[in-house]
Write a protein that binds this DNA or RNA. Structure first.
Lengths: 143, 143
DNA sequence: TTTCTTGCAAAGAGTTTGCATTCCA
DNA sequence: TGGAATGCAAACTCTTTGCAAGAAA
């Protein structure tokens, strides 16, 4: 029993058909260590199941989103990234100069989360956040 | 003397030519009450100066960004929004359900900025951040 | 004049859609 | 079998780019 089955079962329970395409898309998302783009999902899934079309990937992602099985994130890359809903998260600091990516703990944003909740009644999705700026080595913004 | 002149003067001082197109784009951004998309800038500017092409708008926006005169923001709409740099800073809370945008004070992120600086030596650009989540009225993610 | 800017049109990237065909339940 | 899902191709949105023509300084 692969853990992928749980998500598939949810879909099945809700009356959706379990096609090979959907399985492959789900597996690709599950197996990705972090977030993954639609194109990457397409590439990965196609390796295992070549009879797969991009539009099917997008339609499947739409379905998974609607059912709360994957989260869609916009990190300002000009495309969306996807990951299984509920997977453990961390955040990123992206250096505008050397493009280095620093992973930071999720609890750095706890205070912020609390402030937004108490101050604005806003339940923030602080998952997969990327902050841009300049790392220690590039402290002087070289414009 | 319209206040737009100050930005124009900055461009002029830096050796850029003051074309009607650039003036109209700047005016459109200045006159917009909040954030404005490239398409809206194009529409507005074109009303006053019909000899204007989309690519000129994009090229002008690129120029203004490089010179720190406008800020580009990604509110997850699938396009960028622009507003004059230096205008009262704030951040955004974007509701995933009703798409409402709540403006929040910049000092909400002061703590975070300090933590990133002391903990990671990272100088974060917390200029125009958008956080996604669910507002008070949509607190229950309606799947 | 001379170099910067623009317009045009085409090309991109990412995503969506209409419709006929396929295939899961 | 019948309706849901897919493949295909085309369209769509937003943005970028090459190149020749135009216009600031």
């Amino acid at each position: 029993m692969k853990k992928v089955n749980t998500l598939l079962d949810i879909l099945k329970d809700r009356g959706y058909r379990l096609t090979p395409q959907r399985m492959m898309v789900l597996e690709a998302i599950e197996e990705s260590s972090n977030h993954i783009s639609a194109e990457e999902i397409y590439d990965r899934a196609k390796l295992k199941y070549p009879y797969l079309n991009r539009s099917t990937v997008y339609r499947t992602l739409e379905l998974l989103k609607e059912n709360g099985l994957v989260t869609e994130t916009d990190l300002g890359e000009g495309r969306f990234l996807y990951h299984p809903a509920g997977k453990a998260q961390h955040h990123h600091l992206v250096c505008r100069n050397c493009t280095k990516v620093i992973d930071i703990d999720i609890d750095v944003l706890d205070k912020l989360r609390d402030d937004l909740r108490s101050g604005y009644g806003f339940e923030a999705e602080l998952e997969h956040i990327a902050f841009f700026g300049y790392c220690r080595d590039c402290a002087e913004p070289s414009v």
